[in-house]
Simulated scan of single mutants.
Amino acid sequence: MQEKVWICWSGGWGLGEHAAKALASGRRAELVDVLAQGERPVEELAAEIGPSVANTSHHLQRLLRARLVRTRRSGTHIYYALASPSVVTLWLSLRAAGEAHVVGLGWPGTSATVRSCGHDPRRVDEAAAGG
């Protein structure tokens, strides 16, 4: 007979809440977008998205605590990658929902419209497909 495992969440949606809070920062969302294209060392991530290595590390630690990323050490470098294909799926779903609901709408007080953050979505979609 197969053993039943019960998962109890204190406060309701505890597990999803941690992931949602971790992705609530635009900088962390950008990190997830870049990591959806493959594993990177923290220095390369910092160079790609702009802030200092220390600031990037701080954001990566928040993603790590939410278990959205994993680490691998090689010599003196720490490499970050998304924790699983389900994180890529989560990110693609959030991005698609956002685009479906706000693309073409101007930001209040400006004439700007919502647009992609500039990373190649084909590469992210290939990563989600396992390719």
Rank of each mutant, 00 (worst) to 15 (best):
I49L: 13
W9T: 10
L105Y: 05
A129Y: 00
S116A: 13
S116F: 05
E3R: 12
R122L: 08
P41H: 14
R95H: 11
R40D: 08
L31A: 02
R123E: 10
S25V: 00
R70W: 01
T56A: 02
Y80V: 06
C8T: 13
A46D: 05
A19W: 01
S84I: 08
H101G: 09
L68R: 00
A24Y: 00
W6R: 15
I78D: 00
P108G: 08
Y80H: 08
A128H: 04
A127Q: 03
R67A: 04
G131V: 03
D33Q: 06
L92K: 12
H119V: 15
Q61N: 11
R28H: 02
L68N: 00
A81W: 07
W107L: 14
R123H: 07
A29I: 02
A129G: 03
L94W: 05
S25P: 00
A47E: 11
V103M: 15
I49N: 07
A83P: 01
R65T: 00
T113R: 13
R123W: 05
G14A: 15
R27L: 11
R70D: 01
G131P: 03
W107K: 07
Q37A: 03
V5I: 15
W13Q: 12
M1L: 08
L35G: 00
C117W: 14
R27V: 10
Q61L: 12
L64D: 01
E30P: 04
R95Y: 08
K4I: 14
H59T: 00
A22S: 04
A46G: 08
W91D: 14
L90W: 12
A46E: 07
G26D: 09
A97T: 12
H59G: 04
I78A: 01
E17I: 11
H119Q: 14
Q61A: 13
L90R: 14
A66W: 00
W13G: 13
R122A: 08
A20L: 10
D125S: 08
R70G: 00
C8P: 04
S25C: 03
Q37I: 03
A36C: 06
L68I: 00
G12M: 02
R40P: 04
G12C: 03
E48F: 12
E99W: 03
L92V: 13
Q61V: 04
R123A: 12
S57E: 03
K21S: 09
V53G: 02
A112V: 11
H58Q: 12
T110G: 04
A97M: 09
W6Y: 14
R73Y: 00
V124W: 06
S84L: 05
Y80M: 02
V103A: 15
R67L: 01
E39K: 08
G11E: 10
T76A: 11
R115G: 09
E17C: 07
L90Y: 13
T113L: 14
G106D: 10
S74C: 02
H119C: 12
G50F: 06
T76G: 07
T56M: 02
R122F: 05
S111C: 09
G106I: 05
S86T: 13
L90D: 14
L63I: 01
A47V: 05
G75S: 05
P108N: 09
E39L: 02
